[in-house]
Simulated scan of single mutants.
Amino acid sequence: MSGLMVRGLLYLSLTAIGLPGNVAVIAAFLLAYHQERRLLPADAIVLHLACANLLVVGVRCLLEVLASFSLANVFSDTGCKAVIYVYRTSRSLSIWLTFILSAYQCLSIAPPGSRWASARDLFARHLALAFVTVWVINTVMSSPAVMFSLGSNNNSTAMQYSINVEFCFVRFLSIDDRNANGAAQVTRDAVPMILMTLASLIILVFLYRHSQQVKGLRGGGAEQRAAKAVVTLVTVYVLFYGVDNGLWVYTLTVRQTMTSSVISDLRIFFSSLYAALSPMVIIASNRKVKNQLSCRAQEKATLDKATTLSTM
């Protein structure tokens, strides 16, 4: 089996999991909003996160599958600029939204009437501003991709400082340009990673103390379940994006002037794993999503049964 075939199958597995998973989460929250005319702040953050993850899987993984199996190829110079720009923006949005979710959940476990509870209410009132801010930051920081991306069929001789991503190149004019761009991306990812890890540690301390106080009792409240779900998401993030960023740092420090596409493929695969698997965590842990999906499944089963009886 060729390397391109293996590559296509790996991206196909991410697409097969990530596309329906993120669509299901988005549909569940939209149905809930239609019924209740409102979404809780945490639900709005998760909905936004699912949208960003859907972009990662749909724009990057699905197109990689089509190109790997020669079904379609959008990776011209213009296509590479668009795909890499949207991928980098949605990928970093996914990271920052995970941080916003962990920060909000950390504030949500604060005792009523405390300063942290007041901060949570302030956070909730200005959530739209937080969304706009992360969109602006990440769209601006991803803009170099538009200037430097080229299709792999480009025969330019000035490719010595390029990053090879199989069907595209990200070309830089000098090693300093490449390292500066890479350092900016690492910083953009490291800041929310450190902050969300800190928030998750606070949540874990709270959960431990709560478990000691209610030792012997089964289950937990909605806040405890939501806190555990957020810690799980952050753990998945740190695992996959940690590998991704480690490979990115390696790419920036190797002596060769043009990096191998294998390293870039591994980076994209691990970062896309989070976008593909996080909806599974959300579906398993979010009661609102689970209820909406089970209700739709029951309605479909009832409709199918009625259709079958009417044709007999």
Rank of each mutant, 00 (worst) to 15 (best):
T259F: 09
L101G: 01
L9T: 13
V56S: 00
R287Q: 14
G242K: 07
I283L: 10
T133P: 00
F172Y: 05
G246L: 01
M193K: 05
R37K: 13
C61I: 01
S114N: 14
A124N: 06
S310K: 13
C80F: 05
A128R: 06
V83I: 08
A27M: 04
I84T: 07
K288M: 12
T251F: 09
F167A: 03
K305R: 15
N153R: 13
D77P: 09
A28I: 04
L97H: 00
I194P: 02
N153E: 11
R225F: 12
P144F: 00
W96G: 00
L101K: 04
Q213P: 14
L293P: 12
L55K: 00
G58E: 02
Y11P: 05
V205W: 00
K300N: 15
I202F: 04
Y33R: 14
G216I: 04
M5W: 06
A276L: 05
T311D: 03
V140I: 13
L198V: 12
Y250K: 09
A130L: 02
A227V: 11
F131Y: 08
R188L: 10
G18A: 08
A226W: 01
L247H: 11
V262P: 14
R37Q: 08
L127C: 07
C295D: 15
Q213E: 14
I163A: 03
G246Y: 05
L150H: 15
W96P: 00
T311P: 03
S92Y: 01
F206W: 09
A229E: 08
L150I: 15
A199Q: 14
G8V: 05
C168G: 06
A222Y: 04
F99S: 04
S156R: 13
R188S: 08
E64G: 04
S76A: 05
G216M: 08
L47R: 02
Y241W: 09
A110H: 14
P192A: 11
R218I: 15
T133G: 02
V59T: 05
T259G: 07
V214N: 15
K81F: 02
D189I: 04
C106T: 02
L252M: 08
L55I: 01
S2F: 09
T259Y: 11
M312L: 15
A42P: 01
R178N: 03
T308M: 15
R287L: 11
Y85I: 00
V214M: 13
V186I: 09
Q224V: 13
S118C: 15
D121A: 11
A301D: 06
A16M: 14
R88W: 05
V170H: 02
L233A: 09
T139M: 03
S143E: 03
R255I: 14
A32E: 15
E223I: 07
K288D: 12
T307H: 10
M193E: 04
P279D: 07
C51D: 03
A117K: 05
V186W: 01
Y11F: 10
S272K: 04
G151V: 07
V25G: 01
S114Q: 12
L107I: 07
V205Q: 06
K305M: 14
